[in-house]
């Protein structure tokens, strides 16, 4: 049985259509007009225990709304959610023990308490016994280096410190399912790396993780499954590597030769690849399909024609693929096949 399941999940927000300025607001008092905005549109999603899922999409695509629906914060307009088979509103208390939520944009720490006290209050809310709590805290400390920030007041934390403390806060009760909504937003690279390492640890312990992010570097090397949402609909749900194999199969081999070689010679000896000159002399770019030819084969062929001074292979990141999907350049159907 999947640990998180959503069927036909839909959320419609009703927004007052006020027009502009004071005149609009006054008019609204007498003639109310509303506009419906469909934030999440018939989303079906099923996550197995232990899975790590990346949930990506452009701004306003409905990522956060989905997370709020899946954690029971919002009541869906239609459709339903089950967490561990439980109804998130009817069984709110039980569900609360099993899920952990982090909204990167918002803290759950008490602003007027030191971090250690915020965590202790959460420990008591969740009824975590002291021994377990100390053990968890020590483990968080290994990667997140909590020690230095425990005595700091919530309101005095820097963004990076706050995020580390919030991660601990979201996980203090050892939830089975964790939703991380933009958990690296605004962090500097060093902290990002540390936080990402922490996620990998979580995943390796068998926690189910759903990660929402703008920063695609967060998901590379972390999630095997990729779900892409756009305008409230899921436009792709499948294996991350498969997407890369399918859409990121192009490789670019950059070579530098010791003396000039005619472009025609290169092209005829590398059929199926596209060879172009780069800005600086003696430099060439060879584009090829990694399933038609390996980088090694290409290098070997080139080496028979001339002496190679240097070479390097560029591989497109998942970022490029997703960017192409966002921009409508690449249309995927449910199975991840371009239409």
């Amino acid at each position: 049985m999947p640990i998180v399941e959503a069927r036909g999940l839909t959320k419609v927000f009703r927004r007052a259509d006020k027009g502009s300025g004071l005149a609009g607001s006054v008019k609204h008092l007498f003639a109310r007009r509303y506009q419906d905005k469909v934030a999440v549109d018939h989303v079906d999603l099923s996550i197995e225990a232990g899975e790590a899922v990346a949930y990506v999409g452009p701004n306003g695509a409905g990522k956060s709304t989905t997370v709020k629906l899946l954690s029971g914060i919002l009541v869906p307009t239609s459709g339903e959610v089950r967490i561990d088979g439980l109804h998130p509103q009817r069984d709110r208390m039980t569900v609360a023990h099993r899920i952990g939520v982090l909204f990167g944009q918002r803290t759950q720490l008490w602003w007027d308490l030191p971090v250690s006290e915020s965590l202790a209050v959460l420990r008591d809310i969740y009824g975590v016994d002291h021994a377990t709590y100390r053990k968890r805290l020590a483990r968080f400390d290994e990667v997140l280096e909590l020690g230095e920030i425990l005595p700091v007041m919530g309101r005095k934390l820097s963004l990076g410190q706050r995020m580390r403390a919030d991660l601990a806060a979201a996980l203090v009760h050892g939830p089975r399912v964790v939703y991380l909504d933009e958990p690296t937003i605004g962090l500097d690279l060093a902290v990002k790396d540390r936080v990402r390492e922490f996620f990998r640890g979580l995943r390796d312990e068998g926690t189910t993780v759903m990660l929402t992010s703008h920063d695609l570097a967060d998901i590379e090397g972390f999630c095997r499954r990729l779900v892409i949402i756009d305008e409230g609909r899921i436009i792709f749900d499948g294996d991350l590597e498969a997407v890369k194999d399918r859409f990121a199969r192009e490789r670019i081999l950059h070579v530098e030769t010791t003396r000039p070689v005619p472009l025609e010679t290169l092209r005829s000896s590398l059929p199926g690849a596209e060879v172009t000159l780069e800005e600086t002399p003696l430099r060439y770019a060879v584009r090829f399909d990694r399933f038609a030819m390996t980088a090694g084969q290409a290098v070997t062929v080139l080496a028979t024609l001339t002496d190679l001074a240097d070479f390097r292979v560029d591989e497109p990141s998942i970022e490029d693929v997703i960017r192409r999907v966002y921009s409508g350049d690449l249309v995927l159907d449910d199975t991840g096949v371009p239409r």
Partner: peptide, 12 residues
């Protein structure tokens, strides 16, 4: 401010 978000996911 949306502060009820976290309240709603705590068992209290």
């Amino acid at each position: 401010r949306g502060e009820l978000d976290y309240y709603l996911v705590r068992p209290y």
